[in-house]
């Protein structure tokens, strides 16, 4: 495969053709915040947190979906990018009902981590306090739409890795929501295998195990690497379950 040379934040890097900017940045420990992206799942470019500036492009481009090109000049952080990222996290916080102090995912939440990473000191937008539902009909798990950031990781892991395709996205704009089956209660799903993969990849406290209380829901994502390596390389290697 052809090798491409590009510049990121003034340094030269080489990358494989077809690789994303994010992948190169990760290999070289250049921090780019991400939310919808998860190694092992398909890439959708939905959250826009990973936007970077590419010289010659009038638009900011998501690092997770943009492929490297020869001679590309990329900036991953500057005042404008940092500001947009803060705005995205602030909008996510204001359009849901996030009360970290009483949340199962408190201290183990990727949305919290992002808020710290982008320096979200306060939210200037009015909070919307939307009237969202909580679905506790499943035997093992709960879906609390109040904390869902619509990253669609649950949709993808269930479809692409478990092969059950329980979850889907319904509605548009502010009415967009994750639904199970044909917008039925999760507990009625005929296809859910109760594997818990969606719960583990969910970045927030939206999906959690029954019985956990404040701060107790830690997500273990190691299984994903394990399964993907097994499928691609036919190697059943044990991987730390972080």
């Amino acid at each position: 495969m052809a090798v491409k040379t590009l510049t990121i934040n003034g340094e030269q890097y080489s990358a494989q053709e077809g690789e994303s900017i994010l992948s190169v940045a990760r290999q070289h420990h250049i921090p780019i915040p991400t939310l919808c992206h998860l190694e092992g799942l398909s890439t959708v470019g939905a959250c826009r947190l990973c936007v970077v500036q590419v010289e010659g492009s009038p638009k900011l481009l998501p690092a997770c979906t943009t492929k490297v090109e020869e001679g590309m000049v990329v900036t991953t952080s500057n005042t404008k990018l940092d500001k947009y990222r803060r705005m995205i996290v602030a909008l996510l916080a204001s359009e849901g009902n996030h009360v970290c102090a009483v949340c199962v995912a408190n201290n183990h939440c990727e949305l919290q981590d992002l808020a710290y990473q982008v320096g979200l000191v306060r939210v200037r937008y009015p909070y919307l306090y939307p009237d969202k539902k909580l679905d506790a009909t499943h035997k093992e798990y709960v879906m609390d739409h109040n904390r869902c950031v619509l990253c669609t990781r649950c949709v993808r892991v269930c479809d692409e890795v478990e092969g059950a395709h329980v979850w889907d996205v319904a509605g548009r704009g502010i009415n967009c929501e994750i639904v199970s089956g044909l917008n039925d209660n999760w507990g009625n799903s005929q296809t859910c295998t109760e594997c818990g993969k969606c719960v583990m990849v969910c970045p927030t406290g939206a999906l959690f195990e029954k019985g956990v209380t404040v701060s107790e829901m830690e997500k273990k994502k190691g299984f994903l690497k394990y399964i993907i390596t097994a499928r691609q390389k036919k190697e059943w290697v044990s991987i730390s379950n972080d």
Binding site: A93, N97, H98, V99, C100, A101, V102, R122, V123, Y127, Y129, D131
Partner: peptide, 12 residues
Amino acid sequence: ATTGNVTAMRNR
């Protein structure tokens, strides 16, 4: 004071 937090849970 910063986010509304628990106090603002009544807003719905």
